[in-house]
Design a protein around this nucleic acid. Structure first.
Lengths: 121, 121
DNA sequence: CAAATAGTTCAAGAAATATTGAACATTGCG
DNA sequence: CGCAATGTTCAATATTTCTTGAACTATTTG
């Protein structure tokens, strides 16, 4: 379990890698969920997505998202807390993430995205 | 050479397929070029992209773009004329294409996209 | 310390994508 | 008609990407 997870700097974020991340159903759902719930809870854990796939497969997708610069991961105890790199993405590619999220929202049903309204704790 | 090329209707355009198209360097360059040059020349031909790859490979990528609903292809004589389905994309996923194109424009050099300023005929 | 929890790593296999080249089809032109 | 030009098709291969499970590491808790 590596202590230091490599993240690209803002400038190192590449468009094709970002697009590729968002073209995969599992990763799109992760990003969508992260975006939807970041207002309530700042960060989510790996385990919050166990419904999507097995743990090792999730590790794989999370690595892709992190390496592409879409999210930031920090280790806290035995958990990994993740959040979207909204600002970096917005600075690097203005409007892109929002457009994708809005598109996903529109097609939520078609994409079988989770219904995440007011999940009051 | 099939006479009838299948295109999805506007409503049938799927987000993951669109994102996937735009995550491939060759296809992104095609879309970018199409977008940049549609003001001068309405449509481009397959042959206009021979620099990118071999003809049969281009046929493959064009099919992906067409089947994903990003572009429209019509046969004129022995040529295939293609154009972006801007309106359909804008209606279906507002702001998405523009955000991607703007991102590509910003990174044109990094992505090694062709310099397409005023190519006066 | 022992057990439980959370996630990683690695290797293997499955599946999807991309690339090539040779043969073919259509159309335009002399 | 016959040849050149423009693409398509198909099959084979190469490459990449995704998925799985077993073994492992680190951290917390009792």
């Amino acid at each position: 379990m590596s202590r230091i997870l490599p993240h690209p700097t803002r400038e190192q974020i590449e468009l094709p890698a970002v697009m590729d991340c968002l073209s995969d159903p599992i990763r799109l759902e992760i990003v969508y969920t992260l975006a939807k719930r970041e207002k309530e809870v700042g960060e989510l854990r790996c385990g919050d997505f166990c419904g999507l796939s097995g743990k090792s497969n999730l590790t794989y997708h999370f690595a892709k998202l992190r390496e592409a610069g879409l999210m930031e991961t920090r280790a806290v105890g035995t958990a990994r807390l993740m959040k979207l790199r909204r600002e970096d993405l917005e600075t690097r590619f203005p409007g892109l993430l929002d457009a994708v999220l809005a598109a996903a929202e529109r097609d939520a049903e078609r994409l079988q995205l989770p219904v995440l309204e007011f999940t009051e704790a």
